[in-house]
């Protein structure tokens, strides 16, 4: 399953909930203000790093670049473009958007 998070981890519990209930093998895509969850050294980065052990975490590059954080993304997180976004949707059976 593809999980999409578009809110900052500091304003809503979307990322926290997503990390809690996503299964091993799932893919988590951070878009819009969700990209802040990909930053290294933040209060949530340990939880995201832990998820990387058995899940794939991606960040939408254009959203990260717009916010000036493209160079601060945790090691192990894949940066994808819009085509990559489409590929992820096509490759996964279901999409769960954590609004």
């Amino acid at each position: 399953m593809l999980h999409i998070v578009n809110k900052s981890p500091f304003t809503t519990t979307s990322l926290e909930s997503c990390l809690r209930v996503s299964k091993p093998g799932a893919t988590i895509l951070l878009i819009e203000d969700g990209v802040y969850g990909a930053l290294d050294g933040s209060r949530v980065s340990d939880a995201v790093r832990a998820a990387l052990a058995d899940r794939t975490v991606c960040v939408l590059g254009v959203d990260a670049a717009a916010r000036g954080v493209e160079g601060k993304v945790l090691d192990g997180i894949d940066v994808v473009d819009y085509d990559g976004f489409v590929d992820l949707v096509a490759a996964n059976d279901g999409v769960q958007s954590w609004l």
Binding site: T11, D63, A66, R67
Partner: peptide, 15 residues
Amino acid sequence: DGVYQLIKGMDTKGI
């Protein structure tokens, strides 16, 4: 989250 407004090097062309 307001502190994010001041991050340098933003490039919004893609969005």
